Computed example of a mutant assay.
Amino acid sequence: MITNATGTAVQPAAESGIFRIGGDLPVHRLGYGTMRLPGPGVWGEPTDRAEAVRVLRRAVELGVTFIDTADSYGPFTAEQLIREALHPYADDVVIATKGGLTRQGPGEWRPVGRPEYLRQQVELSLRHLGLERIDLYQLHRIDPQVPLADQLGALAELRDAGKIRHIGLSEVSAAELEQARAITEIASVQNMYNLAERKSEDVLDYAEANGIGFIPWFPIATGQLARPGGPLDTVAKEYDATPSQLALAWLLRRSPALLPIPGTSSVAHVEENIGAARIRLSDSAYQALVDAV
């Protein structure tokens, strides 16, 4: 635990605020995503396993209570690293994982949503994470070859059996999200969304209106906005912050339903990213970034 001069614990992630997943599972909104921990192409062992363990422990030290992973990261490498670094888990730490994407090699991903496969993957994730119940289990992709009711039905059965607490989706449209909610309760959605890429605005608005957590993956992509003299670079200098920190601060202000999960394999970058929770954008700075795209 980190303390200041008075001995008080310093956990900047706590300053990002709280969101209750499914209405009953509180997490600090600024979390950590583990996709960067395995090797190149999200395949195999990390380049530096000891550093990967340090990254996870450091994130929790800094107040992160929401860690996002997937069985396909490695595959299974990220889940196993989480267990190595953090098990037994602190009472307030929530591990969210995903299933439904298979791996054929570095950079290769194919959806499989057959109910028997999803049931198998939940059991494997429970084992690899060292859990009796997964707090948030997300369908990594909808398999177009399998009826959605069958995919979500399998997860709902596992929830009823006590192996999953809440169900989430990943990379879906607002229409698909609404269709899914007609089948079972959906607690979260995980789509690509960041300052430079906002194609999922309608999904975010739908999620916020319905109490659904929106987990933006690739949250610190900034594109040309961070170019020298560009809008993000200008605002970052005003706040004595990095462009990545400003991109995260913008997300935290954009909607109370947003749960950014910046990922990295570096302790220094974890510290930098989580420092974004302390930034409070002015109305003018926020609007300047809104208008920049």
Score class of each variant (00 low, 15 high):
Ile67Lys: 12
Ile67Ala: 09
Thr69Trp: 06
Thr69Val: 13
Thr69Pro: 05
Thr69Asp: 05
Thr69Ser: 15
Ala70Met: 05
Ala70Val: 06
Asp71Cys: 13
Asp71Asn: 15
Ser72Cys: 15
Tyr73Ser: 01
Gly74Cys: 05
Gly74Ser: 07
Gly74Lys: 00
Pro75Tyr: 06
Pro75Val: 07
Pro75Leu: 11
Pro75Cys: 12
Pro75Met: 12
Phe76Ser: 11
Thr77Cys: 05
Thr77Leu: 02
Ala78Asn: 07
Ala78Tyr: 06
Ala78Met: 13
Ala78Lys: 05
Ala78Gln: 03
Glu79Gln: 14
Gln80Met: 11
Leu81Ser: 03
Leu81Phe: 07
Ile82Arg: 03
Arg83Val: 06
Arg83Cys: 08
Glu84Val: 08
Glu84Asn: 10
Glu84Arg: 12
Glu84Ala: 12
Ala85Pro: 06
Ala85Arg: 12
Ala85Phe: 13
Leu86Tyr: 08
Leu86Ala: 12
Leu86Ser: 09
Leu86Gln: 09
Leu86Phe: 11
Leu86Val: 10
His87Ile: 04
His87Thr: 08
His87Leu: 09
His87Arg: 14
His87Gln: 12
His87Ala: 15
Pro88Asn: 12
Tyr89Val: 05
Ala90Trp: 07
Ala90Ser: 15
Ala90Lys: 13
Ala90Glu: 15
Ala90Cys: 09
Asp91His: 10
Asp91Lys: 09
Asp92Cys: 11
Asp92Tyr: 09
Asp92Lys: 03
Asp92Ser: 14
Val93Lys: 10
Val93Gln: 14
Val93Asn: 12
Val93Ile: 15
Val93Gly: 13
Val94Met: 07
Val94His: 04
Ile95Pro: 02
Ile95Asp: 01
Ala96Thr: 13
Ala96Trp: 06
Ala96Leu: 10
Ala96Ile: 14
Ala96Tyr: 10
Thr97Arg: 01
Thr97Tyr: 03
Thr97Pro: 04
Thr97Glu: 02
Thr97Trp: 01
Thr97Lys: 02
Thr97Val: 10
Thr97Ile: 05
Lys98Pro: 04
Lys98Ile: 11
Lys98Val: 09
Gly99Arg: 01
Gly100Ser: 10
Gly100Trp: 00
Gly100Phe: 01
Leu101Glu: 02
Thr102Met: 14
Thr102Tyr: 07
Thr102Ile: 14
Thr102Cys: 12
Arg103Phe: 01
Arg103Met: 04
Arg103Ile: 11
Arg103Asn: 05
Arg103Glu: 00
Arg103Asp: 01
Gln104Leu: 14
Gly105Trp: 09
Gly105Leu: 10
Pro106Asp: 04
Pro106Arg: 06
Pro106Val: 02
Gly107Thr: 05
Gly107Leu: 04
Gly107Phe: 01
Glu108Lys: 08
